[in-house]
Amino acid sequence: MTKNLEHKFSMLIREIRKEYIGNGPREITTRITGPWVICEMKGNLTNVEKFMISSKEGELMVHEARTELVKNIYKDPELVKRIEEMMNAKIVSIFTDINIEIDTAMTVFVFDESIMDKE
C-alpha cells in the first residue's frame, strides 16, 4: 500500500510543479517514513536555467529563484488542502532545496502524524 501512495504523491507533485513552474521534473522518487514524505526530483531545470548556470552569478540566481518559488508554491491554501487530503494528515512544515550542479531537488513534507499508520 505504501508504494501506491508514494506513486500517487509523486504524480501530484509532478502535476503541481508543471502547473506552477511550467515543467515538471523528469523523475520523482517519493518515500514515506513515519510523518515524513520525502520527494527527490531529478531533471528540474529548463533550458534557459541550464544556460544561466554557466556562470557563478547565474547559478546563484537560479538556486535562489527555484528555492523561493517552490517555497511560495506551498503557501497556496488550496494546494496544501489537496496534499493534506491525499495524506489524511496536516502539514506541519516543508523543507526544500535544489542542487543546481546535479539538477536534483529535494522536498520534505512533515505531517502532524505518521502517514504509515494510516494504511
Rank of each mutant, 00 (worst) to 15 (best):
M1K: 09
D103L: 07
T2H: 02
E64I: 00
K75A: 07
S114H: 04
E68H: 06
Y20C: 00
E64W: 03
E68P: 01
V110A: 10
N44R: 04
R14A: 02
M61F: 12
E68C: 03
V110K: 09
E27G: 01
R14H: 10
M86E: 01
T96D: 14
T2S: 09
N72Y: 05
R31P: 03
L12H: 05
E49F: 01
I13P: 02
K81D: 15
M11R: 04
F109C: 05
A89Q: 07
M87T: 14
R17K: 08
E78P: 01
I94R: 06
N23H: 09
I13Y: 04
I73H: 02
R14T: 04
V37G: 05
K8D: 12
I16F: 03
H7Q: 14
M86Y: 01
M87V: 13
I115H: 07
N99S: 13
V108A: 15
I38G: 03
I83L: 15
M86P: 11
R26G: 12
H63Q: 08
D97I: 01
I94G: 12
R82Q: 15
P25F: 08
S55K: 09
E40F: 12
E59G: 06
V48G: 05
M87S: 09
I83N: 07
R82T: 08
I38P: 00
S93E: 15
A65D: 05
M61K: 10
K3S: 09
F51A: 10
D117L: 07
K50P: 00
K42I: 15
K18E: 14
T30W: 03
P77L: 15
I91M: 06
I28T: 13
T30G: 05
D97L: 01
V37S: 10
K50F: 06
R82Y: 04
E27P: 00
E27W: 07
F51L: 13
R82M: 06
K75R: 14
M61I: 14
N47L: 05
L79A: 07
Y74M: 02
T104P: 03
N44M: 13
G34L: 05
E57A: 11
T29R: 05
L69T: 15
K81F: 06
L60A: 14
P77Y: 13
R66K: 10
E84I: 02
G24K: 06
S10I: 00
M106N: 08
E49V: 06
T2Y: 03
P25Y: 09
F9H: 04
I21T: 07
R31K: 14
M116T: 14
L5R: 12
C39Y: 00
I53Y: 02
E64T: 15
T30C: 13
V110I: 14
T30S: 15
S114A: 08
I83K: 12
A65M: 11
